[in-house]
Amino acid sequence: MWNYTDKVKEHFFNPKNSGVLDSANAVGEVGSITCGDALRLMLKVDPDTQIIQDAKFQTFGCGSAIASSSALTEMIIGKTVDEALTLTNRDIAEYLGGLPPEKMHCSVMGAEALRAAIANYKGEAWEDDHEEGELVCKCFGIDAAMIERAVTVNGLTTLEEVTHYTKAGGSCQTCHEKIEEVLEEVLAKTGALKPAKKHTPGTVGLDAIKPLEPKAEPAAAPKLTNVQRMQAIMSAIEEMRPQIQRDGGDVELVDIDGKDIYVRLSGACSGCSQSAGTMMGVQMKLVEKLGEFVRVKPASLMPAHAG
């Protein structure tokens, strides 16, 4: 069962503004019955003020599709056309208190119907440019189409590169097999077209995919002195910082207590739903570097006074 927020449930069980708007002067229709969701958005825009005076929707789709449509109409009534155009699918999802990653496409459909309706009002053509494929990485909500695009456009050849470009696979890592499959498929199809510098001829396709090898020297498991061990931990964390900083966060080593390593996450990472994933990532990196089992814990869990 999906974990829908109360707000989603409220808009699903008692949708606002559903039905046909007879006085509509702008209509946007997106989706299809084949895809499993379709939405018709009807607007009544005041030609003098450009204000959306009324909006109604009809939706074929799941609970969150109906809730997203309902939320969308509530969000745009009273706004001018140009104000409404600044709304993104994320705004819809946020208005609903969040959507499960598998359901983000429902908010995308809402945002697109809005663009289509406004284009219709202005008498413009509108290009539907969103793609959808199987959701590959649940942690970051990244689908096969997005990975394919990243791989083709940037000439990526390894799982690690895909993670750096798209984040896919960067958290719980359970999606690595699927990412590698997408990668293999794209490489098999487009291998020959890729920039030559990315790989040497003859390594196209399966050969080009090297398993995720620990990049650094295989961790010298035995006999690290305490100082060496501390240095290894510090340098591993330093290595991870750029990637975490790219996401708007940071990580800092606070203390080492035997197998327990305390760190502080800050910026976008602290408190975000991904922070547990970040912790896990740091832990895996350290385990790999040290060749021993360690636990990474948030500094807030540190015993108040040692001893």
């Binding site: 949708p15 559903s18 039905g19 229709e29 997106v30 989706g31 299809s32 019955i33 084949t34 895809c35 379709a38 939405l39 018709r40 009809q58 939706t59 074929f60 109906i66 697109e112 289509a116 509108w126 539907d128």
Partner: peptide, 22 residues
């Protein structure tokens, strides 16, 4: 069905709906 763009409420039967963008 009363919410569905594919359904004609008053007539109690399906109706044509083929969005341009799909």
């Amino acid at each position: 069905r009363s919410l569905s763009p594919y359904w004609q409420q008053e007539a109690g039967k399906p109706k044509e709906f083929a969005p341009v963008y799909s």
